[in-house]
């Protein structure tokens, strides 16, 4: 019969159309209000694809997600607070396929000898291809791929070469965004500390605390709020005041990485001052 195939096709379309309402009925209006429902909607057992109401709700990225890289800085050991884990060995610059990493190796101003610390570190995010090789091959776990993808800007000449200041994020941040991986890496190093410190500790006869989930020095709940500020706002806002979170959710200042600044739990000015002092001491 002519037209039977078309009718069959339209039946599929109708089922799709109908299915959206089935879901509405199932959650009876609570569909967009409760966080659990978002999970169900985006889950595996749902039929079809449901819209993510970005920016009111966001799909959290998985642990291995990679966007542009960042540098891990110390935030556990008080004596090294704010220092880079990077030893400026240059491996990341070598394995970088599009060669978007520039590193200036630190030197001791008096002796002229290289010191294991980068003096400057640049990543041109207009060249970076987010491949993750730098993080994969870094022997010190000092460079990692960030999860912060919200970085649109109005001016690339000024904002798209990230320098050390912009790249640096504390190690607790890395633990918060990728706990499983961080734990694996720490286990491979033999402790939560930087591998050089672990080495020197072992030399001095001390044994570093074996890393476990429990002694991971961060509080997930706190960091979560920072990592997902918008989503939290969306959840907490009562439904009656619906429009408010939408406006609030829009980026306040896309050019300036305000969120990134907030994420840091330590005083950056103090950290810089400390570094400067250390340098002058040397």
């Amino acid at each position: 019969m002519y037209g039977k195939g078309i009718a069959k096709g339209l039946w599929v379309t109708f089922k799709h159309f109908f299915a959206t309402y089935v879901d509405d009925v199932r959650y009876a209006g609570r569909k967009y209000m409760r966080q659990e429902n978002f999970g169900v909607r985006q889950g595996l057992n749902t039929q079809g694809a449901f819209t993510v109401q970005y920016p009111d709700e966001k799909i959290a990225v998985p642990e291995r997600f990679r966007f542009v890289p960042f540098l891990v800085t110390e935030d556990q050991d008080a004596s090294r607070m704010g220092e880079d884990w990077c030893t400026s060995c240059g491996i990341c610059a070598k394995v970088c396929p599009p060669q978007c990493i520039w590193i200036v190796r630190g030197t001791n101003p008096e002796t002229g000898r290289p010191v294991p610390q980068p003096e400057a570190f640049f990543i041109d995010i207009d060249i970076c291809m987010n491949c993750g090789f730098c993080a994969e091959f870094c022997p010190f776990d000092a460079i990692k791929m960030d999860h912060d993808y919200e970085m649109a800007s109005y001016d690339r000449t000024r904002h798209h070469i990230h320098d050390k200041q912009k790249l640096s994020k504390p190690s607790s941040y890395w633990k918060s965004i990728a706990p499983t991986t961080a734990l694996e890496e720490a286990a491979a190093r033999g402790g939560w500390e930087h591998s050089d410190i672990i080495k020197s500790m072992k030399k001095a006869g001390q044994t570093p605390v074996p890393p476990t989930k429990e002694n991971m020095t961060f509080e997930p709940a706190k960091l979560v709020e920072v990592a997902q500020p918008v989503a939290v706002a969306a959840v907490e806002a009562p439904a009656a005041e619906a429009p408010a979170p939408k406006r609030a959710a829009a980026p306040a200042a896309p050019a300036a990485p305000a969120a990134a600044g907030e994420k840091k739990k330590f005083d950056k000015a103090a950290m810089l001052e400390k570094i400067r002092q250390r340098k002058s001491e040397k």
């Binding site: 966080q35 985006q42 889950g43 595996l44 709700e57 998985p62 642990e63 499983t180």
Partner: peptide, 13 residues
């Protein structure tokens, strides 16, 4: 598929 990291949305995937 999803890590335990982010408490919000942690039922997602």
């Amino acid at each position: 598929i999803r890590s335990v990291a982010v408490k919000v949305n942690d039922m997602v995937r």
